[in-house]
Design a protein around this nucleic acid. Sequence first.
DNA 1: ACCACCTCCTTAACGCTGTTAAGTGCCTGG
DNA 2: CCAGGCACTTAACAGCGTTAAGGAGGTGGT
Lengths: 218, 218
Amino acid sequence: MSTEKRPPLDRARVADTALKLLNEVGLDGLSLRAIARELDVKAPALYWHFKDKQALLDEMATEMYRRMVAGTALDPSDTWRERLLKANRGLRAALLGYRDGAKVYSGSRFTGLVHVEQMEETLRLFTAAGFTLAQAVRAQSTTYYYTLGFVTEEQGVEPLPGERRDGFDVAERARLMTDFPLSAAAGAEIFQDFDQHYEEGLALVLAGIEQQYRPTGP
Amino acid sequence: MSTEKRPPLDRARVADTALKLLNEVGLDGLSLRAIARELDVKAPALYWHFKDKQALLDEMATEMYRRMVAGTALDPSDTWRERLLKANRGLRAALLGYRDGAKVYSGSRFTGLVHVEQMEETLRLFTAAGFTLAQAVRAQSTTYYYTLGFVTEEQGVEPLPGERRDGFDVAERARLMTDFPLSAAAGAEIFQDFDQHYEEGLALVLAGIEQQYRPTGP
DNA sequence: ACCACCTCCTTAACGCTGTTAAGTGCCTGG
DNA sequence: CCAGGCACTTAACAGCGTTAAGGAGGTGGT
């Protein structure tokens, strides 16, 4: 008989299991009871480690952030362009790694100050390149908002890469819009080729930063 | 005794009441029972008009869109810049008009084709100004994603204009980050003056569109 | 050796949620 | 006058987040 002792839980193991489960059942299906079952524990046990469900979601978002940092090689000698490209591509990839990733992420707050180190490094890089602090923040924030908005909409159509939600057939959509030819044709530009379209949008924002702030560098 | 007869409900009245209630209780507090109570009806009655709660949320998002269109004066002789400015400021204002507005909006799909007319008009304007269709869509989408991401984050800090959520005291935040001076100073650039910072970010994106696509116009 | 204490979990229960099934009163058209 | 559909109610269900109370197991103090 299985008398093996489970080691006690900790926040990291709970968050890790919850993230795994998230990919199977989605945010709506992610109940504390389901997470607990996966951990071979009863739901109230989770309250020993988290004060409520939002605290667990916060930890999940924080863990997503940690994995993004770990998966994104940031070189201190990056140009500001390279840095923004890497950071935002890395963010998008991290969010796309989880079903409803963007929703979970944008609905939560980090536990602690995990993100500050990266932020400081990037702000240092930007100010060293000739940006004012305000400009550096604006450049970083604007690309961040773009990425967040993009992936939120993307995951509304494709919850996980390659896995399409119902009601987004581009041909069907075009058929309904025969009286609006431009909008009909736009479907392919909106609901397909997310990777390429993401890159084009990101390039637009970067071009705007370049053109408006024109850092000369030291 | 009040024998006055209520006229039967319809989707519009339900959505309207739900939007009013949303501002009082927020998305988490927006239960079908609460909406029904407001309409002097029992919860299952709502299922006569909507197949499930998501369908009601979809109708709410659609109504938000209609009010945005109604509140935004779009001139067919706008330049593409004016159009993007108006449309995105209008969207932000519409979303800020409701507690959790951005969440409700981005988590829903329009009922019917309400948005196509506007879209067609804007695409016509852009292509007439010298954009290719793909460029027009990219320009529109990129600003849209930026606005959606911005307001999502903004409402995470200020659920309604002027009403601040806990844990976002800029001074307190800076105190925790004394070891990271740039990040500490960045607080004021992130969690305050949303109106101005929104405009600056939007200007960045517009500058990028200008610089990348340089429409010459007919 | 014993008792006190802390950690980590269980059992039981609460009020609430979205949703379904069945039934009921009213209005309209035939 | 009756059939039938519309618009709703009543009752119920499974599941949710959350709280309270308690119990097992280990540690430290006297």
